[in-house]
């Protein structure tokens, strides 16, 4: 019987400090056993429990894409016991990962459609996974146009800056990066994400919006997409709750009858409407 509670051993092969405040880092993990890598089949939008021995586990969205073989990546903000300890470790550290867990962005449903990706702050991680998945040479033709609207409070708080620069060069992504307030060196757009969404005004024709960000951003952005004609079936988001087991048994992450860990974390707005608002 396979034991879903046991972490898979990995080594931290690379740590990237993403932001100027130094409290968001991306950890690249490589599997110590090759067969574990082959068994770790995931899709963008799934998460895993990062396991730091002596500290515990923390559920974090997978920031890499399955089109990037050889490793998995997680972007982690320093916050609680496990994530703060993670921020102390160095490259070469052995740790554990348990997953992949949860459902994923609805890849099959997204195929053949125009995709609008909206992200705010550091909640951009599984969206980055989705973007890298869609723009991979093997996959790009399966999706229509790709519009990305990504915002952070300041230029120094934007994550994945190198990738943003790469995407900016591509003609097959309409990338719109914005900051709430720029600085002397910032030449890009200024403005809150909802405002930028209104300006970019992506068509709702055969389109799906995938949105992830702080609650306040989501609250003000959703009306913009309703005005653009997006139905609740075509707006997809991801929930976060306190989790332990990640497999629907420990009983704390349910919203109504659904477990965010097992039945989510990805839900359409239409699905969320049917659930209680206890999240």
């Amino acid at each position: 019987m396979q034991n879903p509670y046991l972490p898979i051993p990995v080594v931290v092969s690379k740590i990237i400090t993403e932001v100027e405040t130094k409290d968001i880092k991306t950890f690249r993990l490589e599997f110590l056993n090759k067969e574990d890598e082959a068994n770790f089949k995931y899709l963008p939008g799934q998460f895993a429990e990062l396991s730091l021995y002596g500290k515990g586990e923390s559920p974090i969205g997978i920031a890499s894409s399955p089109t990037q073989p050889g490793y998995i990546e997680f972007t982690v903000q320093k916050a609680g016991v496990v994530t703060s300890s993670l921020h102390e470790i160095e490259e070469g550290t052995h740790m554990g990962v348990r997953g992949p867990l949860g459902n994923s962005w609805p890849i099959e449903y997204l195929e053949g459609k125009n995709i609008v990706v909206v992200g705010g702050g550091f909640a951009f991680t599984t969206l980055r996974s989705l973007i890298n998945y869609m723009i991979h040479d093997d996959n790009r033709k399966r999706f229509g146009s790709i519009t990305v609207i990504y915002g952070a409070r300041t230029p120094g708080l934007l994550i994945y800056k190198d990738e943003l620069a790469e995407w900016q060069k591509r003609s097959d992504i309409n990338l719109n990066v914005t900051v709430d307030k720029g600085d002397a060196s910032w030449k890009g757009r200024e403005g809150f994400v909802p405002t930028v969404c209104k300006e970019v005004a992506p068509s709702s024709e055969n389109a799906v919006t995938v949105i992830c960000g702080p609650p306040v951003m989501i609250r003000f952005t959703l009306p913009v997409f309703f005005d653009l004609g997006f139905s609740k079936e075509n707006i997809v988001t991801s929930l976060e709750m306190r989790m332990k087991c990640g497999i629907g048994k420990c009983g704390r992450c349910n919203v109504g009858s659904k477990y965010v860990c097992k039945d989510g974390p990805v839900f359409t707005l239409a699905e969320l409407d049917k659930l209680t608002k206890e999240y």
């Binding site: 509670y5 046991l6 972490p7 051993p9 080594v11 021995y53 002596g54 470790i89 070469g92 550290t93 052995h94 740790m95 554990g96």
Partner: peptide
């Protein structure tokens, strides 16, 4: 659920 030991590289479970 499991046990582990400290190693030079971190921990091994």
């Amino acid at each position: 659920l499991m046990k582990y030991t400290r190693t030079e590289k971190g921990m091994a479970f």
